[in-house]
C-alpha cells in the first residue's frame, strides 16, 4: 500500500475547511460552559441548602450521563413540545449548531464546576486569613486573593478538560453539524479509504490539541513565577494518570 500523497493532501484540504466549524463549536461551548460552571460553583460553595443541592444534582446528572444523549435530548427532545416551538428560544433550539454548543456547554459545565471547586478548596485558609487581616473582605478578597490562587490550582485539570472538549465536538456531527469528524465520515463513505482519512483527521485533531496545550502551558507559566525558581529535583516517579471521565 503506497502513499497516495495527492489523496492525502486533498483530504487534508477538505477536512481543513471544516476546522473553523470545530473550533467554533469548541470556543463557544467552552466559554459558555465556563460561565455556567461559575454559576454552579457559586451555588455549591456559597448557596443555601437548596442552591447547593441544585449544584450537586446538576453535576451528578451532567457528569453521570453521556453527552450524546444530552445532545439528542436538547436537539430532538425539546423540539417535540409546541410550547418550545412557539417560544422565543426556538430560533436557537431549531439550529443544530447552537443546540450542539448548548449540549457541549451544559456537559462541560458539570466537569468545569468540579474543577473550580477543587481549585477553591485548594486555597490555603491561612492566606485567606492573611487577606482578612489586611482588611479585605467579600468581593475584594475573592478578586485579589482567592480567585488568583484557585485559578492557578485548577489550571492543569482545566487543560485536560479542554482537550477532552476538542474531542467532544465530534458528536455535533450526529446532529448534522459538519465539523471535522462529520466531514471525515462523509469522505470515508464516498472514497472507502478509511485508514487514510482517519489518519489525516486524527492529525488535525492532534495539531489542534498541541496548539491548545502549548497555549495553556504558556498561561500556566506566566501565572506561576513563584514556582519557577524552585530547585529542580530529579524525580521520574509516578506521573499522575490523566484519565478523567
Amino acid at each position: 500500500m503506497g502513499f497516495d500523497v495527492a489523496f492525502l493532501w486533498s483530504t487534508f484540504v477538505k477536512l481543513g475547511s471544516a476546522v473553523p466549524m470545530t473550533l467554533g463549536l469548541f470556543a463557544a461551548s467552552v466559554s459558555l460552559g465556563a460561565l455556567f460552571a461559575l454559576g454552579i460553583t457559586y451555588c455549591r460553595v456559597s448557596g443555601g441548602l437548596l442552591l447547593s443541592a441544585f449544584g450537586r444534582a446538576y453535576i451528578f446528572v451532567f457528569r453521570g450521563s453521556p453527552l450524546l444523549i444530552q445532545m439528542f435530548l436538547i436537539y430532538y427532545g425539546l423540539g417535540q413540545f409546541p410550547a418550545v416551538r412557539h417560544s422565543l428560544f426556538w430560533p436557537v433550539l431549531r439550529d443544530p449548531f447552537s443546540c450542539a454548543v448548548l449540549a457541549l456547554a451544559f456537559c462541560t459545565a458539570g466537569y468545569q464546576a468540579e474543577i473550580m471547586r477543587g481549585g477553591l478548596q485548594a486555597v490555603p485558609a491561612r492566606e485567606i486569613e492573611a487577606g482578612r487581616a489586611a482588611g479585605m473582605s467579600g468581593l475584594l478578597l475573592f478578586r485579589r486573593i482567592i480567585a488568583p490562587i484557585a485559578i492557578r490550582q485548577a489550571l492543569p485539570a482545566y487543560s485536560t478538560e479542554i482537550i477532552l472538549m476538542v474531542k467532544s465536538t465530534a458528536l455535533a456531527s450526529l446532529v448534522t453539524v459538519w465539523e471535522v469528524t462529520g466531514t471525515a465520515q462523509r469522505l470515508i463513505s464516498q472514497t472507502y479509504r478509511t485508514m487514510e482519512v482517519f489518519l489525516v483527521a486524527t492529525l488535525i485533531y492532534l495539531l489542534i490539541n498541541f496548539i491548545i496545550v502549548r497555549l495553556m502551558s504558556l498561561v500556566e507559566y506566566r501565572l506561576s513565577p513563584h514556582l519557577r525558581e524552585r530547585p529542580v529535583t530529579a524525580s521520574n516517579g509516578g506521573r499522575q494518570g490523566e484519565v478523567h471521565g
Partner: peptide, 9 residues
C-alpha cells in the same frame, strides 16, 4: 487524541 467517534468509524 482522536475523537472516539472517528475511531469507531
Amino acid at each position: 487524541g482522536a475523537p472516539e467517534l472517528l475511531v469507531i468509524y
